[in-house]
Design a protein around this nucleic acid. Structure first.
Length: 423
RNA sequence: GGAAAGUUGGCAGAGUGGUCGAAUGCGGCGGUCUUGAAAACCGUUGUCUGUAACAGGACCGGGGGUUCGAAUCCCUCACUUUCCGCCA
């Protein structure tokens, strides 16, 4: 959520930057500003009446104590008016607040200055490409066929148990998953992240705090009986640990990492590109979350990007880094890097990580603050990134490392898998 | 699932209708003392909103009600804890 004080004082900048993300809704911004003004003037009215009412009540108390009942009764008789007036005003105020809130949550975050303009994923800026795309033999198989060939991932079995998009990993497939999770967690720990295990069902307040609610409600699985949501990413529970917290500057940077399964309904995203592991309803991911001083957040974003790349390098996967354009960037993010890994058999790039700086967009909802140098409360900056999402990594590992003899396990994983070939 | 008790400031914990934004303790910050530190002592210490600055307003789990006036009374919801049952 954007800060109203900023919108109020920087209307033109807000409009200009929203345009960078193709959010060309001048009317909405002006509506927010108008509602804010109306809200505040109504509030002033309401408060001045409340002040009179409070003073009268106080006076009655004093008179009663002095035993001057008659005078007290006289004031009491008049006090009823305040109540009636206040009731009317406060009802109006409540409506205005609802309306204001409903509008302001529709505004996405303002893109950072480095975010390129653009409409679609095609306009994303390629920051760098790393590694050679291997030339696979003509008979190279896509990962879903390799999965079947070596009997390590069973999509049909998952359909029986749950439905499409819930694969069953078997034998070395399951072991490979576990190896990757442990590898990612160990790497994160080495880089100063504290490992946490968090709930994978979250309440509505948490969903709101990180920006999934109210707008992306349909993306999450909802457990109605208990009014909880299955997490679409560990970002939600991990970041929400700091909801309402007042932090100390010395605490920064706060670095947490968590492995969790992630659940996404992916309603309406069926098509040619969702085969195999490309898009699932349930998948595993190791997530990084940092809460930092506002002055440091872009430095930290670069650091996180570099760290994620180091994982891909260790796995020897060819990848590229994109700086998402305004049109492709997420609702809550100010700037995002996507890391994509080359799928040799599918001849396409697969997104395996997304690293974002949310600046104060989340912390304003979360009320995650700290006392600054000047002693004033400030909103912290939040960042997060996948490090990494497993399925597409598995897909690329299988595809890139296929040989006649089987699939060679990347060297760094061998200590974790306990085997170096899947055959 | 059944029963009971709770939810107050960073924490602990008083407060049952008016002077309570809230005692007290701990913690934090500043100071005295000290070569330095600890202890002791003194002072200070919530958030949001609002103003040029004062003033003013809101907040004692959420929402609603009673009242001139609510942390305090009533209703309702949520959550927490304990006991019983069940159970990885």
């Amino acid at each position: 959520m954007l800060q109203i004080s900023y919108i109020r004082e920087n209307r033109d900048d807000v409009i200009r930057r929203l345009k960078v993300r193709n959010f060309d809704q001048l009317a909405l911004v002006d509506e927010v500003i108008r509602l804010d003004e109306e809200l505040r003037s109504t509030k002033i009215q309401s408060e001045s009446i409340a002040a009179e009412g409070n003073a009268a009540a106080k006076r009655i108390g004093e008179l009663m104590r002095q035993g001057q009942r008659e005078e007290a009764e006289a004031i009491k008789a008049r006090s009823g008016e305040y109540k009636d007036q206040l009731k009317v005003l406060n009802e109006q105020l409540g409506r205005l607040e609802d309306e204001f809130f409903e509008k302001i949550v529709q505004l996405p975050n303002l893109p950072y200055k480095d975010v390129p303009a653009g409409k679609t994923a095609d306009d994303n800026e390629i920051v760098l490409e790393h590694g050679e795309k291997p030339t696979l033999p003509d008979n190279a198989l896509p990962h879903w066929e390799l999965a079947a060939k070596y009997d390590i991932i069973d999509f049909e079995l998952g359909v029986k148990v749950s439905g499409a998009g819930f694969p069953v990993y078997k034998g070395k497939g399951a072991r490979l998953q576990r190896a990757l999770i442990n590898f990612f967690l160990d790497q994160a720990a080495e880089n100063g992240y504290r490992e946490v295990q968090v709930p994978i069902l979250i309440n509505g307040d948490s969903g709101f705090g990180t920006g999934q609610l109210p707008d992306k409600e349909g993306q999450m699985y909802y457990v109605g009986a208990d009014d909880l949501y299955l997490i679409p990413t560990a970002e939600v529970p991990v970041t929400n640990m700091y909801r309402g917290e007042i932090l100390k500057q010395e605490d920064f940077p706060i670095k947490n990492t968590a492995y969790t399964p992630c659940f996404r309904r992916e309603a309406g995203s069926y098509g040619a590109h969702v085969r195999g592991l490309n898009r699932l309803h349930q998948f595993d991911k190791v997530e990084l979350v940092q809460i930092v001083h506002p002055d440091k957040s872009y430095e930290v974003l670069e650091e996180m990007s570099t760290y994620v790349q180091s994982l891909l390098q260790k796995l020897k996967l060819p990848y590229r880094v994109l700086r998402l354009c305004g049109g492709d960037i997420g609702f809550a993010a100010a700037m995002t890097y996507d890391m994509e890994v080359w799928s040799g058999a599918q001849q396409r790039w697969l997104e395996v990580s997304s690293v974002s700086n949310f600046e104060t967009f989340q912390s304003n909802r979360l009320k995650t603050r700290f006392k600054g140098e000047d002693g004033k409360m400030q909103l912290a900056h939040t960042l997060n990134g996948s490090a990494l999402a497993l399925p597409r990594i598995v897909a690329c590992i299988l595809e890139e490392n296929q040989t006649d003899k089987g699939i060679r396990v990347p060297e760094v994983l061998v200590p974790y898998t306990g085997f170096d070939w899947i055959s």
